[in-house]
Design a protein around this nucleic acid. Sequence first.
DNA 1: CCCCTTCCTG
DNA 2: CAGGAAGGGG
Length: 638
Amino acid sequence: MNLSLSDQNVHNSSESCLEDDKPDVMLPCFRRSMYDEPLASYSNGSIISQLLRKTIHNKRALDESHFYLSSSTAADSGQEDQSSVSSKDSTVEAASPSGHISTGASPEGEHPMADHLQAKRARVENIIRVMAGSPNGRQHGDSERSDTDARDTREAREAYRENKRKQRLPQHQEHSAAGQGSRKPGSSDNCNTKDEECHKLKEQLHSMQRLLRQLQEKFLQVYNQEDTECDNRDEVETGTENDILGESTESRESQNLQETLKHELSRAVNDCVDRVFKKVSPTGLDLSPQQRMCSSPEMQMNMGADRKSQQASSALEPQAEEAVVKPRSLEYYDSSEAQSPQDQTEALALVVRKPAVTPLSSVTPTVKRPYPVHQAPFQFNYSTPLHDSHILEHLLKYGPHSNFGGLPCMPPSMDRTSPDSVDLPWDTIAMRSKVTSSHLGHHPRPSSLGGVTVDNLCLPHVKIECGELQSMAERNPYMSLNIQEGLTPSHLKKAKLMFFYTRYPSSNVLKTFFPDVKFNRCITSQLIKWFSNFREFYYIQMEKFARQAIVDGISDVKDITVSRDSELFRALNMHYNKANDFHVPDRFLEVAEITLHEFYNAISAAKDSDPSWKKAIYKVICKLDSDVPEEFKTSSYL
DNA sequence: CCCCTTCCTG
DNA sequence: CAGGAAGGGG
């Protein structure tokens, strides 16, 4: 990841911008799913340049100044408009516009102001148009498997898939577990309401279109202002690090422009979303637009970690069609990769039981989908489910647990059409889970908001790391809200953190703190086994460091302490809190110190000659358990 | 018996 | 971390 753009990087990104203007490269890219772009293009350019490229090419496709929504399509440009807007066929799109790409693209960098200004204006206009455009244009690519070909890395694919699943979550919950068709939830039982809602949505769409048009005007104003300002600044701001003046100013202008656009667009879209939501959300659970737009922790994290890309995507992605789900571009995953580059370094041979299926049919938003689910234009994940009382019910019942955490936000599958997927028995197989060390770089900081946090509802950052689980999830749309029949890496991580409090948890405690797990003999013993393994490691470390202390010639036990700086603590922390995202309680340090002292004393007294000399120590240590914080009952910690 | 734990091994 | 053996309680 380019966390910081060096001068050279800036330069390169500008260059690549020019290069990438080649139509055969960019247009398909542009018109296809947003998910396709980041990996393909961010690798060699900044986000800004990425945005610029997009808008430039967008201009190509939409050069005729009209809203496809509000006016008839000009004959000569009809194809382009359609391809970019409704995107019937991405291959057609890729080919058709190649002819005139060079007109706008190459002058952009080589030619001075006239074209330059035009291009800028066009970018603004196009952004607006894209916003107003049908989601299908982008969604199309999204729905195609072949898109994954564009992503080389495994992370990208996974992010993509996960993204798609998440996108699907809301609407799948819309109806019963009886299994809706993969398209509209149009069963006859509530046709009327559907029509009504369709109407409402239509109205919403219209108003959104109006709003967007207003925005366009506003942007043009802003743009014109900034344009002159920038021109002035260009005079002054010479001698920056940037090699090429034209490009650096271009970059600054773009940034200003982009900032404004992002801000305005976000606001506008949020407004629209609000309005739609007011209609589709009968329950009073009201989230702020911000919450909706970034309702997942991941998104929130990215708001912090990579606010720019987040905003950029949210600004460019908005679609008018249905402000219910907002697609998340790979940008998110880009940044999250940066945070946990180690993800997936270890093969996780997790074998999980078949997903439990609880009919959470009614955990559904009231929003209708006028198009196939896999074309959801908005990724409005997580917020929608929140509006359903059943979820709250569920939360009250089981706690806001890993039902969401274990399979965070597991969205409905693509082939929910397969009937068997929906009613797998609870108790099917009880196999062992092989959960390798988890790189679940999530932040366990408890962040409870009255017990129900967004975190509790979904932990997208905790990737589905096992193929089994993943594929199962794909087969079972409702898995995400169900009790787990197997232990997931998330559970393992949680268990490890719990170890900081309790070394000898009773099975009751385990059941209490893993309420999202369907306990059976195997699961229980597996969990117990985990803690047994934890203890093993713990005691091995203790003995090791105790002996080391003796070797080091420490003669007084009091000279042996365990602080957070201690090597011993580091070793332990590395083992139980690898991500180092959990604040280890002081009590654990005390216990560790006591344990170390016990070992030291025993070894010093040569008790270790007795084969069972450790038992005495174990007996002491097992009394030092403390209560596990209630927060662990929620998945906030996962 | 069953449950739980440790120990050992892979 | 999982499997399995062995041993100690209830």
